[in-house]
Structures are given as structure tokens and as C-alpha cells.
Write a protein that binds this DNA or RNA. Structure first.
Lengths: 132, 132
DNA sequence: AGAATAGTTGAGCAATTGTTCAATTATGAT
DNA sequence: ATCATAATTGAACAATTGCTCAACTATTCT
């Protein structure tokens, strides 16, 4: 049978390609181990929450600054070069996560760091980045 | 001169309140020190970039999984329970930041971790979170 | 050659985020 | 009492992000 002139139906006639992988391609034992020992969902969420706090220039600088000593919101805003409002909003997040503590003196609020692990992690990262 | 009857103009006539703090409220020396020794902008950006990568459940799990050994994209997607596409997109980010390396074998790509600092940071954080 | 598979990529979308603006509370000063 | 100041908060807006979908490349198999 001679080939008709229309044989080639255009490759775009291909059906939608699966975008999931239904079989283990290669390292079945490692895949099994990982499925068993993968981080629990709530562990992952907690880790993400921790790193999220640090993944913002303002919060990072707040934590770094408070690492040097207690500061009132106004002084902190001054150091950051940001508005009182923006500073206060970020402090609230840090407060909610119990990374900072505060005390009032009249109408002034003094904030300080309240999480040794976070402090150390930032210091380590700073050292690593600054060591060229 | 007698006071006019119009003195009280309504409190809501207050003009827009400054949202910046133009003076140092309290600890001038510390503020001066911090202004001098605050993290440089590019240091902050690098730090943020580092923490941003880890502030996502998928990337975190990828890094954790690759910490156990080299994996092809398909196996990795399988372990994560995600689509090939989503997995590949995230791997591209990790590749761009040189956190993972890869090698090809035929049409399969094998990825592995390529940043000891990141690996250690995740391991430390996991340990801290899991230690109740 | 043609079909199937492993992986990559760009566009588009829904969800989230950080800031500003304006209003508000509470304390201190006149 | 009234005003100014320190700080907090909610709404709104712009920018960013992570996924899906579809199209595409490249390699392997028949």
C-alpha cells in the first residue's frame, strides 16, 4: 500500500503527557527508605516557619540589631531607616513567634531577642556569608 | 486680646501623623554603633536569599532527601508526592543557586547536594525542632 | 522512522506577603 | 482639658511565589 500523501498527522496530535511519575525509575531502596524516613509534615511546617522569619531583610536586620542589645521601637525604626508602622508590624510577627520579648516603660516599648537558636543561626549565617 | 469663640476645632482636624521617627528616643550610643556596624545591604540580600530557599516545604524536603543520596528527578518527585514539573521547577532554583549539582545518564538527570553549609544548617534545624 | 519516556520550560493563576496610609490607644507634657 | 508623642492595628495595594498545564527537547526502544 502506497503511502498516502497525508500519512503524517502532525506530531501535535499527541495526547496530554502524564506529569506524574508512577514508577520508581532507578533507586528503589533509597526511595523506600526516604518514604519511610521523610520529615513529618509538622516538622516541615515548623522548619519552614523558622526559615520564613529569616527570609526577609527587615526581620533579619531587626534580629541582628536586637542581638546587640535592647531597643525601643523608635530607635529600632531609626536604625532600620523604616517607618514606625512597618517596624511595629514586623515586631508583632516576631512577638507572635516568641522570638522577641518586650517590656513597657511609660509609653515606650523595649524589645529584645528571646530565642538563642535563632540568634545563633543568624550569627552563623552572617559569619559564613562574610567569610567571602 | 480675648480668645475667640472658635478655639476648639474638633480633634479629628489633626493633621496626618508622622510615621517616621526623626529623633533617637532612648539609647543614642547603641543607635550610633548599630548605624555604623549594621549588616551591609549585599550581606543582607545574600542572607535573605539563603533563608528564602529553605522557607519552602518542597525545597526543604528536596534538600533533606538529597542529603541522603543522589536521586533522579522521577524518584525525587515520587518521594515528594509531587509532579515532575513542580519538582523540576524547584530543582532549577536550587541549581541556579548552586545548592545542587547534577549529572546526566542517558535521558535521566541525577541530582545531589552541593552545599555543605546549607546541608548542615538544615540538619541542625531539624535536630532542634525534633528535640521537642 | 515513529512512539514512548525523562526532563525542562514559559505562561498563567491563586495565594501570600510587606509596605503604606489612616485611625486608634495610651502615656506624658503644658 | 488639650495637645503631642510612642506604639499598635486593620485595610488596601503592589509585588512575589509555587503550582498546573501544555508545549517542547532529547534520548531510548521497537
Amino acid at each position: 500500500m502506497p503511502k498516502a500523501t497525508v500519512t503524517k498527522k502532525r506530531t501535535s496530535a499527541r495526547l496530554p503527557v502524564r506529569d506524574t511519575c508512577e514508577q520508581v525509575c532507578y533507586d528503589a531502596p533509597l526511595v523506600r527508605t526516604l518514604k519511610r524516613e521523610m520529615l513529618a509534615d509538622d516538622t516541615v511546617m515548623e522548619l519552614v516557619a523558622t526559615f520564613e522569619v529569616l527570609a526577609d531583610p527587615t526581620r533579619l536586620r531587626i534580629i541582628y540589631a536586637l542581638g546587640r542589645g535592647e531597643l525601643c521601637v523608635c530607635d529600632l525604626a531609626h536604625v532600620l531607616g523604616m517607618s514606625l508602622s512597618a517596624t511595629s508590624h514586623q515586631l508583632r510577627r516576631l512577638r507572635d513567634l516568641r522570638l522577641v520579648k518586650y517590656r513597657y516603660e511609660g509609653r515606650m516599648a523595649f524589645y529584645s531577642l528571646d530565642d538563642e537558636f535563632i540568634k545563633k543561626m543568624v550569627e552563623d549565617a552572617v559569619q559564613h556569608v562574610e567569610s567571602d
